[in-house]
Nucleic acid binder design. Sequence first.
DNA 1: ATCCTTATCTACATTAATGTCAATAGTGGA
DNA 2: TCCACTATTGACATTAATGTAGATAAGGAT
Lengths: 202, 202
Amino acid sequence: MAGRKRRSADEARAELLQVAEDRLARYGLEGLNIVDVAGAAGMSHATLIHHFGSTEDMRRALVTRMTDRLLRDVIAVLETEAELAPEKLLRDLFSTLSKGGHAKLLAWLAVEQGLSQSADPAAEIDDLFAELVPIVAKRLPTGADGELLARRMIYLIATSAIGYGIAGDTLANLIKLDHAEVEDYPAWLGAQVREMLEPDTD
Amino acid sequence: MAGRKRRSADEARAELLQVAEDRLARYGLEGLNIVDVAGAAGMSHATLIHHFGSTEDMRRALVTRMTDRLLRDVIAVLETEAELAPEKLLRDLFSTLSKGGHAKLLAWLAVEQGLSQSADPAAEIDDLFAELVPIVAKRLPTGADGELLARRMIYLIATSAIGYGIAGDTLANLIKLDHAEVEDYPAWLGAQVREMLEPDTD
DNA sequence: ATCCTTATCTACATTAATGTCAATAGTGGA
DNA sequence: TCCACTATTGACATTAATGTAGATAAGGAT
């Protein structure tokens, strides 16, 4: 009743997304309903709707935010490291994907709503991928069609990472890969990627 | 009012699962609610609950049924074909996974409910994987640790297939892989797999 | 200081889904 | 033929979530 805290619209959105991201990592997707997110951010759910328009838009904004940061990190690593080190890169990437809930949120969007068809998936994300492809391509030995190979590698890594984030544990149980081997998988995949990129150099 | 059709319990379950599978492929996950599934099968939703216990159990049974058939198909192909042809195998596998909605249903289970932790994922599925591993391992050139490599290959293919089924279209848009290249991806991955299995034979 | 914009809240309306229960009616077996 | 079993159903209860509307108050601009 007494104190109403008034933030700027940008602040409110930022706070809500931060809380949402924390809750996603801690409680999974169920934690992303507007009542709980707004409550944890110290606002009413009506305020959240006011700022995002709808629950789905809020989750979309969260996907964009998380994907954006993830891609920036990957690009930064690729531009910094002189030596191509896919093992470490993939280890970090897969870890982020599964721990932070990125993959599950993405899956939710793709499955429950139509992520692919209509809604344009945020121009920023598109730009980041456009930036990423040539960076990867530059690392490849081949000259001709290097970009297509780069796209395929990115596609392979991305699909596997998403599957890993969503069903990695379940699959591991079924295939009888123990914990340590699952942990090693991203690095192993990285090594395979390295081999695929350097066909005859060993 | 007038005519009530009475089936055996097994028949009822089978009919419901068949309808559910059709609806999943046609309408996606939203089509899998008990009212619509039961309605399409000509029963009331209470009947569905009676036979499966709960909505979640129905969906679980569906996952089991679909996974079971998928694995049987893969095993059959591997046992029939004299020559290892991962390209064709993966093309069929990925197609089934994405067209039939397997991947999305699996994702739903893994995300919404806890597929991995408690509930044992159907002994039959477990058995089929146990059968699959040595079959794949037998195809490998290496003798020592062939099984670990086989498990990793299966894990790679499975994670990528699931990611492909869930977010393949979205990713393709972002990475600017056109339709034809996405269609070719499974076969390309198959070719990579073949290379990984025959390290120095070319 | 006053005013205007808008962030915020409470209360309500709506919807969609699951699950329960007691009654009903097929069906196979005695 | 009759009976017991159970598949089937309609009606109801519950729940959880989203979204709406009108009132209120915080804070910047003039």
